[in-house]
């Protein structure tokens, strides 16, 4: 357990009236993991990720983050790239990306980290643009860059390539994997894209709230 970053033990999340989005899931995320989370729409992927990043609480079971340092879970320890870009419309890209840095109370000017993150997703020249001035794909990439600014130990991306063309999607996943490798961070990507999933080390399959068809040895 000591080398675990996140553990789920029999975690269940139900929504009224009788929807069980996550059903008695037990899992472990270790440092440096590259995990693909797959499943059809409505299978419970986003609900699982919400529980994992601390945005939601389970009805039953236990979630722990033993491998993460003390301090705020988000955005210092876990970076999140949402299903849609979720950028603040009244802030430009640089300001949107600076937000996690300020929320995590990091010292110094976030300018360099912001520039590096934007360069990584190929938006280095668009720091002054407003979200309304970006295409859907550019906005998604900006959302991914925002998840990396604080150099978190775990990055969770919910369908980051869903609205990207194949080449851009592949480039983005490549950049994410390279970044995770360089920073020693774990990466969990929810995706419908088999090609994206194929680039991950481990594969989780969600179906009707249950985490199934995972590689042997990953579920205790």
């Amino acid at each position: 357990m000591l080398d675990s970053m996140v553990t789920f033990d029999g975690v269940t999340r139900r929504f009224p009236p009788d929807v069980t989005a996550v059903d008695e899931v037990t899992l472990r995320v270790r440092p440096g993991d590259r995990i693909a989370l797959q499943g059809v729409s409505g299978s419970g992927k986003s609900s699982l990720l919400a529980l994992m990043v601390g945005l939601d609480r389970p009805n039953a079971g236990t979630i722990a983050w033993p491998g993460l340092e003390k301090g705020p879970l988000r955005p210092g320890q876990i970076g999140i790239a949402f299903q849609s870009a979720c950028l603040l419309p009244s802030l430009n890209l640089a300001e949107n990306l600076a937000l996690p840095w300020l929320i995590a109370r990091y010292a110094g000017d976030p300018g360099r980290a912001v520039a590096e993150a934007l360069d990584l997703v190929g938006l280095g020249e668009m720091a002054d643009r407003l979200p309304s001035e970006l295409s859907g794909g550019q906005a998604l990439r900006a959302g991914v860059a925002r998840a990396l600014v604080t150099r978190p130990r775990l990055v969770v991306a919910d369908e980051p390539t869903g609205q990207l063309d194949g080449e851009t999607g592949r480039a983005l996943i490549g950049a994410l994997l390279a970044w995770a490798e360089a920073n020693g961070s774990a990466l969990i990507v929810a995706t419908h894209d088999a090609a994206v999933a194929a680039r991950m080390d481990r594969h989780w399959q969600m179906s009707f709230g249950r985490l199934t068809e995972v590689l042997a040895g990953e579920v205790a």
Binding site: L55, P72, L73, R74, P75, C86, A104
Partner: peptide, 15 residues
């Protein structure tokens, strides 16, 4: 939505 995004990013009452 903007406020929810701030909250989801980890922004507390101060942010």
């Amino acid at each position: 939505r903007s406020l929810a995004v701030l909250r989801a990013l980890g922004g507390g009452a101060a942010c």
